[in-house]
Design a binder for these strands. Structure first.
Lengths: 217, 217
DNA sequence: GTCTATAACCAGATAGAC
DNA sequence: GTCTATCTGGTTATAGAC
């Protein structure tokens, strides 16, 4: 039996390059990751990488784009289920904590590669901001649903920024202490207090979580 | 009159190199900052840089060490003044916000260069962790003083981590949107709520800040 | 301590056979 | 689409005059 010509070798190679580049760039950062490192790690010649992506910047844009789609598709829809604020907030925090825990490289990429700024191409910068904006929008819409803030966009905006910064700060903490996890309990208390501070009606059950998930780091 | 031999030329050159390297590394990161860039920007030959610091890694360690000392010396002593929790918390938050606003490069360096991990030398990693540990210890001691937590070290530890992560997250937000500032009002509400959540007695005046300092981004 | 000059190397990127 | 081979330029780092 003859060996099949394997018409998918191209896409599999492309994926392998992206996998390797994602791994290396999330560890070493963009500048410290060379094409030769990627080439050696995925056992494909450098010229194949250039054939698929055109340039190192092209690799970077593709890596970012895939990371954004991967992380966003792991986040549940913005209409958070739950009978009351307490339940919906728990669901939201669990979704954030799970995505954060299970996609460490995606989060780290967003932050680490965000440093490029002037160095990066216009396409790279655009992709980076698309990534950030999508996360912020998801958080804002979700928190609007959690706290029923449809008529208070400035409040949901502040809560979303606060949550995103807590998550970013935890990602930073994690590369000093890899055991760090998102402190969802503290974030729960803080978001409830912030909502109350802005006069958002909370109801009675909100102040007690369904079940404790303590974390440290 | 003969020109003075200027015995301080060495230290002034050393400082100029460190200034330039700090600026460039906080913008481009370690890997993307080359010795030739530093040499050109400070108008000293590359060999002078090697004479002073021995290697690029040596420059990096010296930059980090100076940033740590600079940022820590800008932070007030850990015994926070104030008659009640509300006043002391305001003083603490103002100190954090001021240092954060006035030393943007120092903060960014800590975070950005923290990515190095495997790439960096042992000396660099040690200096980096010394930096982080000092900040965390300062926050813990200050919050112990603010909330009188001398017998609740686990609570002050959690509050300090929470505050440090909020600050780190804001530093990240700032390289997407440079106008971002530390949201001290939100952090105030969150810290008070976290303290209350752990049963720390707060008194009546704590829930109202002395004066609003709203920030956005 | 500072300078010029340069060694040794590795980066990003391309040409062209297959 | 993948390979070998290579070009060009920048990188870290050093040698040695001053």
């Amino acid at each position: 039996m003859r060996q099949a010509p394997d018409p998918d070798r191209g896409v599999r190679s492309r994926d392998a390059i992206l996998d390797t580049a994602t791994e290396l760039m999330s560890v070493h950062g963009y500048a410290a990751t060379s094409i030769s490192m990627v080439s050696a790690a995925c056992s494909l010649p450098a010229s194949s990488i250039y054939w698929h992506f055109g340039s190192k910047d092209g690799v970077y844009v593709a890596v970012l784009e895939r990371a954004r789609m991967s992380l966003l598709s792991a986040l549940p829809p913005v209409t958070v289920p739950g009978a009351d604020i307490g339940q919906r907030l728990d669901n939201f925090l669990q979704a954030v904590g799970d995505a954060f825990q299970r996609h460490p490289r995606d989060v780290k990429l967003l932050i680490a590669l965000g440093m490029l700024q002037r160095t990066a191409s216009a396409a790279a910068l655009a992709e980076l901001h698309r990534y950030r904006d999508a996360l912020l929008a998801w958080a804002r819409d979700s928190l609007t649903s959690v706290f029923r803030l449809h008529d208070r966009p400035e409040v949901s905006g502040q809560l979303a920024r606060f949550a995103l910064r807590a998550a970013s700060g935890t990602a930073v903490a994690r590369w000093f202490d890899p055991a760090s996890t998102l402190d969802t309990d503290a974030l729960r208390v803080a978001l409830l207090a912030l909502a109350a501070h802005h006069g958002v009606p909370l109801g009675a059950s909100a102040s007690e979580p369904a079940h404790g998930r303590q974390s440290s780091g």
